[in-house]
Design a protein around this nucleic acid. Structure first.
Lengths: 163, 163
DNA sequence: CACTAATTATTAGTGCACTAACTATCTGAG
DNA sequence: CTCAGATAGTTAGTGCACTAATAATTAGTG
């Protein structure tokens, strides 16, 4: 219906460049919101939001981790992670206590319930790929494209702001 | 450095499925945030946030539009658009008045300043592609992938929730 | 050793995004 | 013609995400 769009994108700049439907950034944000939205019914059963799910993935990989560490792994500001962790603590999935030997850092640790939730979560990736009708190859291809894009933005950040 | 990831994804499900770095949804959200972040310095000069930029693109295409119309074009809830429009009105870029003939609908209209801003904006797409080091072909390819993904999520939404 | 620097986390403030609840207007079936 | 239901926007409430400012601890240098 509306997929002539890409095929007709010309090689040089035109005044069509400002058409909403031609914007990669628009397609990307819609895709992101749509995919996250598709996770919702599945994650609801675990009682997690999508960002919370990502934090849990992080902790299932290794358990006592600092805020800075998690923040780095998720490419998110500590100020974003902080309240998120507070909610996960309230939900009884993690504990937060100062690290011994370095009282400024926080030791974020899975509770028994938090660790146990992993069992239910193992089904999530497969369920989602099936729901979206993606093969492992397609998913891998998209993953690679996104990784490249992320790298491109890092390069762009290094260029202009001139720090 | 860390790009062995995709090449080593096996064909069948393993316990590695829960590794953060293997999640497409993670790569997608990071890519989305990163790209939007890359727009920031450029859009700052126009005094727009990225979501506001998308609304303006919308209005530069056709000017008196209803909230519902804009909401549909941007794939966003009216409740999200509403306060966003209020800020654009405060910024003097648009006006909001009830439509004559249908007092429930709103006529969102560009002001002179709003229309004029388009001149500055014409440079944005080109600037961004250059900054990200993307060719038109690459951008087109990514755009097509995102469009497919979006379609996949729509299909998924139609399946399960069974309305 | 003292005092500045850097590191780590949190808080405040703004803006997006969504759901649910509400108001106002319009439409259409009886 | 009337009033139940649909339509269009807004508001309230929650949660993310970012920047800037703050507090607390640690490390390093003179």
């Amino acid at each position: 219906m509306t997929d002539v769009t890409v095929a007709t994108v010309p090689t040089e700049g035109t005044q069509d460049d400002l058409l909403l439907e031609h914007q990669l950034c628009f397609a990307l944000t819609v895709a992101s919101r749509s995919v996250v939205g598709a996770y919702k019914p599945v994650l609801d059963e675990l009682g997690l939001t999508h960002p919370q799910y990502l934090v849990m993935l992080c902790l299932w990989e290794s358990s006592p981790r600092s805020v800075r560490d998690i923040s780095g792994a998720l490419a998110q500001e500590p100020a974003t992670i902080s309240p998120l962790l507070r909610r996960l603590e309230t939900a009884g999935l993690i504990t937060r206590q100062r690290m011994e030997g370095n009282e400024r850092a926080l030791a974020v640790r899975l509770t028994q319930r938090g660790a146990a939730l992993r069992e239910q979560a193992t089904a999530v990736p497969g369920t989602m790929m099936a729901r979206l009708g993606l093969t492992r190859e397609q998913a891998g291809q998209l993953h690679a494209s996104m990784t490249e894009l992320i790298a491109a933005t890092k390069a762009a950040a290094g260029d202009a702001p001139r720090r």
